[in-house]
């Protein structure tokens, strides 16, 4: 972080609080196991990334999970779910941000979101298979069958990515002027 930028710090804190509140409004999808839930808390992180730079987005993802951990505690003792959520969020927003940075238009954003969704879905399937499901097995002794990666986790992440993309595109079109006005008022982190 370069110069002390109070406004950026405060905004990141504020967006983390928004993300946390949105995280409380989560809902499970029909047909999926209950630990896979959809919420819209990645949207504030994406907004933070686009307005204040990628680091801001990563921080919002971090604080959102930390806040949830501090206030509700972890059902598993060791916060595997929170770590997984943080990694998913970062893997979704970073590619989206960098592609959008290359092509700054609505079309660019659409491509970026589709790419972000695909990258997240693939990466999270791999990570779940090799890291998170074994972690659940070690810490919670909750053996999740590894076929679930293909039958649940992959389609879940694609569905979630599509929903995020739809919401963010509508949001972006409606708030374009506001976003570009905000962008110019921050030193980028």
């Amino acid at each position: 972080m370069k110069k002390l930028n109070i406004k950026a710090f405060v905004s990141i804190g504020m967006l983390s609080a928004v993300a946390f509140v949105l995280m409380l409004l989560d809902f499970p999808l029909p047909m999926f196991p209950s630990f896979l839930k959809i919420d819209f808390s990645d949207i504030p992180a994406l907004i933070a990334a686009i307005i204040m730079g990628p680091m801001a987005g990563v921080l919002v993802e971090l604080f959102k999970n930390l806040l949830d951990l501090l206030t509700t505690g972890s059902v598993t003792g060791i916060p595997v779910g929170h770590i997984a959520n943080f990694v998913t969020g970062v893997i979704f927003i970073l590619p989206t941000y960098y592609i959008y940075k290359k092509i700054k238009s609505q079309k660019g954003l659409t491509i970026a979101l589709i790419a972000g969704t695909l990258i997240t879905a693939i990466m999270m399937s791999v990570l779940n298979y090799f890291v998170f499901l074994p972690m659940y097995a070690v810490f919670m002794n909750y053996e999740v069958p590894s076929e679930w990666v293909v039958s649940f986790i992959l389609p879940f992440n694609i569905l979630k990515g599509i929903m995020m993309s739809i919401v963010f595109l509508i949001l972006f079109v409606k708030m374009q002027n506001w976003i570009s006005k905000q962008q110019s008022s921050f030193n980028r982190l």
Partner: peptide
């Protein structure tokens, strides 16, 4: 700086919850 952001978020969660 990280602790500051965290404290600000904690301070504003109830406010933002009301607003939501």
């Amino acid at each position: 700086e990280l602790a500051l952001m965290m404290s600000i978020a904690l301070r504003f969660i109830p406010t933002l919850m009301d607003e939501t």
